[in-house]
Design a protein around this nucleic acid. Structure first.
Lengths: 144, 144
DNA sequence: CTCAATGCAAACTATTTGCATTCGA
DNA sequence: TCGAATGCAAATAGTTTGCATTGAG
């Protein structure tokens, strides 16, 4: 089941409605390569769908996060970002604090260790956030 | 050098001044066992120092973060929290999304893997954030 | 038809800032 | 004395909400 079907399914189960706005937002969101703040996505959508309001984008992103299609990310700059969940390839982030570049990484050995830690504390992990902040090669070279 | 001396030193190097408010804030902050939001700390301080303003607490916490005495934490609830850095024992967090309980953990093997990942991407890590969200044993039992 | 969704503007919340006054060095 | 710090109030920024209208089922 693809994510569009999954969303429709979720809406139906919750007694919510499938609107053209929601579809447009989801569709555009899924095409994203990077991380969208509500505003980013709102601005992108304006081009093809100038009538979609900011609040609708915001509410739809919340919905997508609820049903597991999106994850909320918070890099500490006071902006919440959303990114499509790829069930098959979980990843975390390296964030360059100089240029803002975001690199994705995934490291199964870290995930394993997380599970070990959780078990030690009788804790059941539902999600996690793992971000490494620093400088990318380019910025490190420039600031020399 | 303890952290009070370290702060004084930092202030002096930056041409800033050591005030009674800053000392009171630092002192109270260091006694904290948990994580303070600006407001938390402001309220605690009101008892003994009713004249200290919110903005001063906020600005001092920023200063403490700058000089490495505090770290900013962001658990995604829209509140920035600060916690004293313990140079000797870095740790990350397990956060119960049911009761809000926060458990600290540290796992050197994860830190090592982080370094490996960074190296692979020509990245220099300055700091990181690693949080595991889920349910603690108690909440998991209750919600059954 | 009915109730959820939308779009707009207004409300909120946490954070940050401007400024007159106070105070440390 | 001089510039930094303070406390207050006001400004911002991001997020969320109320409500009249629209539209899906």
């Amino acid at each position: 089941m693809d994510r569009i079907a999954l969303f429709n399914d979720y809406l139906h189960r919750q007694g919510l409605k499938n609107t053209s706005q929601r579809m447009a937002i989801l569709e555009r969101f899924l095409r994203s390569k990077s991380h969208y703040s509500t505003e980013d996505l709102y601005l992108k959508l304006r081009k093809d769908h100038p009538k979609i309001g900011y609040a609708t984008v915001h509410r739809t992103l919340k919905l997508l996060a609820e049903c597991g299609i999106a994850v909320e990310l918070n890099f500490g700059d006071g902006q919440t970002r959303y990114e499509p969940v790829k069930a098959d390839q979980h990843h975390d982030h390296l964030i360059c604090t100089s240029c803002g570049k975001i690199i994705e990484f995934s490291e199964p050995r870290i995930e394993n260790l997380q599970e070990q830690v959780a078990r030690q504390h009788d804790f059941i992990i539902h999600s996690h956030r793992h971000e490494l902040y620093g400088q990318c090669a380019k910025c490190a070279a420039e600031n020399r």
